[in-house]
Simulated assay, not measured.
Amino acid sequence: MHDIASKTGLRAELLGRRAAMPPEARSAAGRSIRDALLSVPEVEMAGTIAAYVSIGTEPDTRSLLFALWKRGTYVLLPRLLPDGDLDWASYEGPDSLVPGPRGCPEPSEPPRGPGAVGSADVVLAPAVAVDRTGMRLGRGGGSYDRALARVGPAILTVALLYDAELVPNLPSEPHDQRVRAAVTPSEGLVRLG
């Protein structure tokens, strides 16, 4: 058990590293992550995938979302609720995204409720870092911890990371939810736990 200050400092350090990456390196990483995920058996077979629209310096998900949608996968994307929880709605292509709270693009389709994430066959989650046990360090709002708590134990939950963000261990708190895998540009899908 570590304190919140250590998580805050680590988060700031890792986000600083992301910001220092050249845009071309971030683009190349996003393409590698997309290609690795599209070949994962659970992703290939999934009828429904809960994903997210990357913002800022996060590994790019836009081409991944488009590729999943074009191949007929039902893609759910989050809509941030006023209490910080996540509602979910379907992605109907790049033109279906509208500006949401805090500048996060979100789907314009009707909301399906916070529990909709529980119907996904695969859940892709943003993270600042993940350790080898699956402990995930997010942005600190707790939105994805709440969403991941609604996902069954047999569902593949995957954090999308840059190479240096899969680390030996992370500080954690009781409410933190683990992911079952991470995907990085160099390693592809890494199963954790």
Rank of each mutant, 00 (worst) to 15 (best):
V123T: 07
R79E: 05
P41L: 15
A25T: 15
S90A: 15
L14T: 11
R79M: 09
G142K: 06
I55Q: 10
D95G: 14
A89H: 04
A149H: 07
L38F: 14
G134Y: 03
E24C: 00
P107V: 03
P99S: 11
S27V: 09
E58C: 08
G115D: 11
A125C: 08
S54T: 02
A116Q: 00
E13T: 14
A25N: 01
P105I: 10
E44C: 13
Y144A: 00
A125M: 05
G140H: 11
R139H: 15
G16W: 03
L137N: 04
L137M: 14
D131M: 03
A125V: 12
R132T: 06
V53N: 08
Y91R: 13
R136Q: 02
L76G: 13
L64C: 12
E106L: 01
R132E: 15
L77D: 00
L14H: 13
L137T: 05
R26T: 04
S96D: 02
G103V: 09
A50G: 09
G47S: 12
A89L: 06
A29D: 02
L81A: 14
G30F: 06
G56K: 14
D35C: 04
P107D: 01
A125N: 02
L81G: 04
G115Q: 13
T133R: 13
L38N: 10
D60Q: 12
D95V: 14
R34Q: 14
D131K: 05
P82M: 07
D131R: 05
V53F: 06
E92S: 15
T61C: 11
E44Q: 15
D83E: 15
G93P: 11
R17T: 08
A20G: 10
D87C: 02
G103F: 11
A149F: 04
R31L: 10
A127S: 10
A19K: 12
A67I: 05
P126T: 04
S32W: 10
L97M: 09
S27C: 03
C104F: 06
P99A: 13
R79I: 13
K70H: 13
G140A: 08
A25F: 03
S27H: 12
D35K: 09
P126G: 07
S63D: 15
A19E: 13
T73E: 05
G56N: 12
V53H: 08
P126E: 05
L81W: 06
F66T: 15
V40S: 11
L86Y: 01
A28K: 11
G134I: 01
L68G: 07
D87W: 00
Y144K: 00
S143N: 07
R79H: 00
P59G: 06
V40E: 14
A120Q: 05
P110G: 08
G103T: 12
Y52E: 08
V128W: 12
P99G: 11
R71C: 09
A28D: 12
G100F: 06
I49C: 01
S54L: 03
L77N: 00
S96P: 05
P111K: 00
M135Y: 00
L38S: 12
P23N: 07
A129V: 02
V75R: 00
V122Q: 11
E44M: 15
A89T: 07
R132K: 11
G47M: 05
P94N: 07
V117S: 04
R132G: 01
M45D: 10
L77F: 01
A12C: 08
W88K: 01
A36K: 04
R34N: 10
V117P: 02
G72A: 15
T73K: 10
M135R: 06
A127V: 04
V128R: 05
G84Y: 07
